[in-house]
Design a protein around this nucleic acid. Structure first.
Lengths: 342, 342
DNA sequence: CTTTCCCAGGAAAGCGCTTACCTGGGGAGG
DNA sequence: CCTCCCCAGGTAAGCGCTTTCCTGGGAAAG
């Protein structure tokens, strides 16, 4: 009863049994125990408000029970959605999940991987990683490899230069779908609001848009870089429009930035098509309702967690997730755009 | 080196020192150690990819380091915002935060409190609790009390029948503000889209709206109950309008439901004022931009975490957080409403 | 009334780490 | 050249729990 916290010893002493017996009763061991002792131990547990020390138990059992998740930021709707899926399957499996926010800081990401390993997690899933930085990539690969060598399981969401289980959304195809949609509507001058340059999500989606431009025999779209959030999207839209007044359509590489673009456009009274990416819940509630490329984020999270919790397979499993066009009201034919300008 | 995981023993053996020395070097203890040994130990750590077992360390040090957070659901924007604030101060304090989602299941909430206690967290903060259920409340109080008796700190966000540190938003005043705004605009028939009946958040806000009705000598507003999410809000709006065709204004008790209301209204072509609650990021991006009652959610989270991390005070500290009206475009005078109906 | 077997319950050895305490050998002082 | 002191480094005792192995006594069998 050091520092006021009741221990198994306290319980055993109070019930007049050995710690072995108390432990068996508390854990519902299969070993038979007389009803009298059971009652006494249970009474002691209740009286002392005893709760077993999870660390001591973990140490003694030396089995890994929790799982770790490292993402950019759970508060961000994109990751919130992924996390929802992750949690669902982790909880179903009776596991505690430890969530770590990196805020896109590579150093922090490395630290968290180590911290999770120190906490003996059974598995970890990484999302929103995948920076274009050779040094970081090597360090991360090293840490993950070390973790896997000791029996840890890891699954990654998104493209990664690492071989291992992964869930990878088809961002390139999604980007193509977005561009294709715009060019097919007759737009000739398309702008792109991109995310941070060093993320593969950005480059993959952008590559897709560019491919669409090529296949329609158009020059590469103009690109402005932003931060995947609403306000930076609004700013980038303003910049892009100022620099290229002839644009009639904008592909934002995620919905948050698309919403920002819409907000900016509302202010300047220009009728420009906007397409987003991800199909976040907000997409259908803005006006005009946002045309976007849907990714089944929650499912991706769930899938990644099941991969991470399943026994390792000799060949890394890579689940490709297709993107899908959701046409709503924020995109329209070039004709419609022009007819409005008198 | 059981099961492939390197232990301190392995490191010490490889470096040819005792575990005590290895431990001192790894932890940067103040005790002086020769440079030669230091190098050897550091090399061994690197070679073996050694990471100290957090559970063993925690057990040996028996100091509490992590903190726990129990909320309804981190993916929900309301709690995401609160969590963002919480994390900020916890991380600044160098603490691991364990997030638990209850999905409004009281049993799960109780379990999580126990689990966090088992994990020896230094503090926990509860948000989105506060059900009207005497049995649950008693059980929760008991568990929290037991935890505090052993030196644990707890802070609560929202009204609670428990005495202890808390940050409580002034939901009643906010509700009044919402109602007052609507009645002052000339509306005579106001409807309320409420959240789950058993939450104090719902009842407090509702009480406020009712008070506004009384002070304007109007009968109590008609109420439809929903679940604090968008779709239930849309459904409740439909029901309410069907039952009371003369309504000209709706107060939704959170923004998600207000957005649902707006979505429904868009379909039925009726010009009705809608006010929300919380001022979530989405509020300014829907059309019409949502008038709402702002609560500084991230700050509330931060405040709660600082309370929880500060030394206990003899008198429980209760921080009241004021609500503020943010007028945007979704509410307008009754005249405007009527003039549109030909 | 013995002997054998069985089983409820206890003793004790760890799990991996930290740390209070002890030890031995070298440098300084006599 | 001998003491004494000092300090780098080691020894070992836990931290709170689980679990293997052992024990003793009662029931069953002779």
């Amino acid at each position: 009863m050091i520092s006021g916290v009741a221990t198994l010893d306290d319980v055993a002493r109070r019930a007049g049994v050995s710690t072995a017996t108390a432990s068996r009763i508390i854990n519902g061991s299969s070993k038979p125990v007389s009803a009298a002792l059971r009652d006494r131990v249970e009474a002691a547990v209740a009286d002392l408000h005893y709760v077993p020390n999870a660390h001591a138990r973990q140490l003694a059992r030396s089995e890994r029970t929790a799982v770790g998740v490292v993402v950019h930021d759970v508060s961000d709707p994109y990751f919130a959605e992924i996390t929802r899926g992750l949690q669902r399957v982790a909880t179903t499996d009776g596991r505690l999940v430890i969530i770590c926010n990196t805020y896109r800081d590579p150093a922090r990401e490395l630290d968290y991987v180590e911290l999770l390993r120190a906490h003996q997690v059974a598995a970890m899933v990484l999302a929103g990683s995948g920076y274009h930085d050779a040094g970081f990539a090597r360090a991360l690969r090293g840490k993950l490899r070390a973790y896997e060598l000791t029996g840890g399981r890891v699954a990654v969401i998104g493209r990664h230069d690492r071989t291992g289980d992964a869930v990878v959304p088809d961002n390139e195809a999604g980007g193509y779908l977005a561009g294709e949609h715009l060019y097919a509507l007759g737009h000739r001058d398309v702008g792109v609001i991109a995310g941070p340059r060093n993320l593969t999500t950005t480059t993959d989606r952008l590559t897709g848009v560019r491919r669409a431009a090529r296949s329609h025999h158009r020059p590469p779209p103009k690109v402005a870089y932003a931060d995947f959030d609403r306000d930076s999207g609004a700013r980038a839209t303003a910049d892009l429009l100022a620099a290229h007044p002839r644009l009639t359509a904008i592909a934002a590489l995620n919905d948050s930035m698309a919403v920002g673009a819409l907000a900016h456009l509302r202010g300047v009274d220009r009728r420009i098509s906007v397409i987003g990416f991800d199909d976040m819940p907000i997409a259908r509630d803005v006006t005009p309702a946002l045309t976007t490329i849907r990714l089944p984020l929650a499912d991706m999270g769930a899938l990644a967690m099941s991969l991470a919790l399943s026994p390792p397979s000799p060949h890394p499993r890579v689940e490709r997730v297709p993107a899908e066009l959701i046409a709503r009201e924020s995109t329209f034919p070039l004709d419609a755009t022009l007819s409005v300008r008198p």
